[in-house]
Design a binder for these strands. Sequence first.
RNA 1: GCCCCCAUCGUCCAGUGGCCUAGGACGCCGCCCUUUCAAGGCGGUAACACGGGUUCGAAUCCCGUUGGGGGUGCCA
Length: 469
Amino acid sequence: MSSRPRLRFAPSPTGYLHVGGARTVLFNWLYARRHGGEMLLRIEDTDTERNRPELTDNILEMIEWLGLGWDGEVVHQSDNLDSHRAAADKLLGAGRAYWCDCTPEQIQQRARERGGPPGYDGHCRDRGLGPGPGTALRFRTPDEGTTEFDDLVRGRVSFENRVLEDFVLVRANGTPTFLLANLVDDAEMGITHVVRGEEHVNGTPKYLLIGEALGLDHHPTFAHLPILVNEQRKKLSKRRDSVSVATFRDEGYLPEAMVNYMALLGWGPPDGVEIRPLEEIVALFDLADVTQSPAFFDVRKLQHFNAEYIRALDTEAFLDRVRPFLAHGVATEEVLRPIAPLVQERVRLLTEVEPMVDFLRDEAIAYDDASWQKHVAKHGDRAAAMLDAAVAALAAAPWDRDAIEAALHSAASEAGFVNPEGKVQMAKAQGPVRVAVTGRGVGPPLYESLVVLGRERTLARLKDARARL
RNA sequence: GCCCCCAUCGUCCAGUGGCCUAGGACGCCGCCCUUUCAAGGCGGUAACACGGGUUCGAAUCCCGUUGGGGGUGCCA
């Protein structure tokens, strides 16, 4: 195969792009890039009943957000209905397909009465029906022989033709099914590698059989990726699991972190280095190295990756990325900027930034009850003493980080936050101050925060807290 | 039911007959550092599903069992 590989991602607009689909796009994209080929995008919209055209926008937007993209124009399967019909006619003319007017209910009922396996029984095979209302076109699967194919991920897979039921090629409403349109379009588009989820393995012999019956010289290489599962080890479902890519974006995940993480679902670099630039992954990636067993999408590991990527950003880039997640725009950015590196190191998600710095921006703060109890109330008189000492020391100190540290240090000593060896216990002493000023027990480094907050507001908040005791 | 596939730490990957007293990463636990929280450093916990073969030698090859998943739509 000397020609450049041509791959495609072929989603149907029946749901938002979810992580399973995103992983499939990624592997298609990686393989195309790795081998100097291209990855096309085809929207499989032949099921007019279920399509939701607006979802196509989401799919396109998410693929772009991930930084992947596609080659050429987006293809809409519905634009190629003439070819699908022509293929159906050809199959009918060659005796490889026939009309069937059985309803799903009838098919089920016969299967029940028969007591045999569910599925279509070939009832209309030789009834010589013509097209008409409620009549669908079925493919006549061979009664004997086997259909096999080589899969880059799974090796050789073989099916006995007799277990393949006569499936529908054209619905009663005249639209082609996925089985027909998918094959016809792949052939016309010159697709060389079909990389898709494992759920399509069973449909592959049908794909092959149609192509063969059509006399097409279309023999793509297949690669069925292991599916992504939830904690119950079930296939990720848009309904059960919250896995929309847009949701991850809105929760503050960085696209490069997601792409990096998803590349590790079913694949791993030979040197074991997991967090690395996309270009390196492209250089190392190969479908032949993809795992054969299902992978669990572990959000906790994703979060770790996201935190790593956030930390790796330079300050300006970090600010650019968080901006959409900040309330009150510029006002927030102003208080964040001075301590951005400190915040950057403490968040896993971009959405965690706002609640970490809002106390620097807002006039009024709310005390977190648990924090107040643990860091202030519990220490009783010492907390009150610390607050008083802090007010006094801070009122006189120059307003810079080191002076603030020194001031709070002496205040702690004065308030009795000293261990038996005479060492000041700043870990405990900063508690009342932190809660008084931020409302919470945890947050960015205190001294640096106070610099940003300013003397006036700091003193006012310390006094407010003191008054509550 | 039938068909297809899968099977190494809780999770994701490494391992392709001897380098494995099974390695890395996430998580978890402990210690250090430390103004909280993070980050960082150090250490630890934890797996070859089971049974037969093949072989001088199996996590690695074969068979079976068990378990899990996918498919079985006029969805894709």
